[in-house]
Amino acid sequence: MTGFILRRVVQLVIVLAIVSVALFLLLRLLPGDPTTTILGTEATHEQREILRAELGLDQPLIVQFGQWILSVFNGDLGESWITGEPVSAVMSDRLPVTVQLGVMSLLGALLIGVPAGVLAAVRRRSTLDTALTGAGVFFLAIPNFFLGPLLVLLFALSLGWAPPSGFVNFTDDPIANLIHMVLPAVTVGSMVVAVVMRQARGAMLDSLGGDYIRTAKATGLSRGRVVMVYALRNALLPVITVTGLQVGALLSGTIVTETIFTLPGMGSLIVNSIFSRDLPVVQGAVLLIVVAVLLINLVTDLIYAWLDPRIVYDAA
């Protein structure tokens, strides 16, 4: 296990190195002059040159990259070109919103997706199975930037059950915060629910067909116990992996959803910074998201290895 963890961490570091080079190069190739973004079009040539030197933009690319990486390791992601605030400070205000949105939609997806998948598998080929599978196809195909407006139209504007947009801090008013987050969480989580349900149904069908299930039934155990304890336990393994892999898609979903519901999270930060050409903020936010996804994937792998005693990773 230690060997496996070590190997996975080394892999992670290599991928991170590649990601940071790619991210750095991609945004340095940006057409247009960053000094125009900061100083505006009225600035003189001298003012631009001074700023260029200050930002280190007059240095060779490789030196710029080295300086950037060094400061990233020191927790310094640079300063916003627009507001002058440290990027890390801008992000620390925004991060909790996205984390809350992600956690709520992921929990919701698991709480709905797993039981729905189990039900569909247990009642295979019934009307319920067909209905649930159909709902899965629906939620996989509806883009979240369309589902969001639909939910607003139905639950906010027509029924008035939830506010159409806006955000309240959890610490200010927990109830209002949750009410504001429900529609966004449904918007982000809908696709994940469909994926989780599909996977849970497939995995349950596989494990319900196993010999040990027949044996368990033959020993006279109750149907509920056979399904919930014997079959579900094995079926949950692939569900965990698939859910872990959905985190990237989930974060993609938060970008669009935060824009729809005007939530002050990381996603809307990235979009706004792209429009205002605030490169350090885009770079910092994207880097943070990629690191988060990579870490979550690593943790998913470790949980999987820990849960399944058959997997021997050190042998490879």
């Binding site: 790619a22 993609s252 970008i255 792209i274 994207v286 998201i289 990629v290």
Partner: peptide
């Protein structure tokens, strides 16, 4: 494959956004 690993590490829309940010 290392390039592929690096690119796949980005969530899809995040990478697409970053590229559009660079290209306009």
């Amino acid at each position: 494959m290392r390039t592929v690993d690096g690119l796949i590490a980005f969530p899809l829309l995040v990478l697409a956004l970053t590229i559009v940010a660079a290209l306009g």
